[in-house]
Design a protein around this nucleic acid. Sequence first.
RNA 1: GGCCUUAUCGUCUAACGGUUUAGGACGCGGCCCUCUCAAGGCCGAAAUACGGGUUCGAUCCCCGUUAAGGCUACCA
Length: 478
Amino acid sequence: MSTIRVRFAPSPTGLLHVGGLRTALYNFLFARKHGGVFILRIEDTDRNRYVPGAMENLIRTLGWAGLQYDEGPVTGGPRGPYIQSERLAQYKACAEELIRNGKAYRDFLDQGDDDEQEKSGEGEQPKIARRQNLLSSDEVRRRLEAGEPAAVRMKVPDAVTIAIDDVIRGHVEFASDLVNDQVLLKSDGYPTYHLANVVDDHFMGVTHVIRGEEWLPSTPKHVLLYDYFGWPKPVFAHLPLLLNPDRTKLSKRQGDVAVEDYQKKGYLPDALVNFIALLGWNPGDEREIFTLEELTREFSLERVGKSGAVFNMDKLNSVNKQYLRTKTDQELVSVVRPILEESGIRGFSDDYLGQVIRLTKERVTTVCDFKETGDFFFADPARYDEEALKKNWKAESPKYVAAVLDALRSLETFSAATIEAVVRRTAEQLGVGPGKLIHPVRLATTGKSTGPGLFELMEVLGKGTCVRRLERALQTLV
RNA sequence: GGCCUUAUCGUCUAACGGUUUAGGACGCGGCCCUCUCAAGGCCGAAAUACGGGUUCGAUCCCCGUUAAGGCUACCA
């Protein structure tokens, strides 16, 4: 069996979409699993939608997610170029070959005429473009020589059934009468997706086409083209769509769809990848957390489902939390530090940030949350949370806090253990439960009523800071 | 409108005709733990869209209905 070759073929029209990431991931996993090749191909055949820099961005985001491609732009490869706008001559030659063989023809109508026709058609019957006999061959030649722009359309046969056997969907049939004479080469000389994709997949040796379900309806066109060229067909696998909560195709408007959005919001790449892998695929048992290596080992197209999957933020959050806990404190320091510095929080050592992360990482959802959850580690509380105040700052609280403050001042070693001992002893001496002191002290030192264990947090803060904050609270809060 | 696809808890899904009182996870509710919040543990509510077949037996196979989605460009 020949080497498996698959490709991810985005168009450079913007940021990488999470649906695109999943398609890329499944292609990547399939290739790796079978010792095959994962190709990145840029489909930039629509000059109107081209966004400068989009390709670089796509590559960077794929890299962030850990999906390294084997052949593609920048890195190159034996079947390049991997950017379609650099392969124009090839598409043109292929289109001409089809014309020569009577499988395609020139069409001088422009886009506007096309729409016009459809409107005037107006019935219930679909308007299938079949225009090969509109002009005599003499006239075609004359207008061509006159330099009139022409598109090339494929000729679709009447009354045949075009069947595909999709790995995921099974056997699917289409009636050729409902397939229109697709434009293959636009009048600007660029190919359409349909031509370019078939030509490239053939010349790049692609064995499996793994793409979104939105391509299923145009697959008969592609199948026809393979036959026209006399090329072997790849195996098709059409993936179920990723959905909005209302079950429409995942789109902007209903939340973030760009991978970069999730990156910015503080999701870990391996967590996002893990979560997305489970949208449409499962290992068949009850495991849910996988490294990329484990996914590679377990993945199979056979276990990909058929129905669309809603992109569920709650689940993503849960997965991200689980990943956060698997990271070491220092690993997270390097991720969290830049986020803090963006907000002007700087000057803290790796060791200190590591301590902060150790105490807060079980309480955050994303790496961005460290800033908010751990704010009191970076500055004295700017204000005291109002509800916490109401709940935990009672009339007798100042007295208790003052007692704790006194006891703390004489502490030699300021560790969680010694702080706890002192606080509990003080409570005992005052004849009240330790909670009566702990809650107001927490409020005074952190400004809130929630967070890491008080004694651990005070140890990290250090004696000076704690004493200062308690003093200040006693002055401010009455 | 036409074509295509899909259909198990709110969501992601398991079950590859019988071992099922339909399993897990997220979310939700309760309890435990506890200085709070998380985490963790335990418990709970929650689904096979509907109607026909086939079969000794259907979540699973077939047909229909319904619903949802995708596609219907010289966009990808």
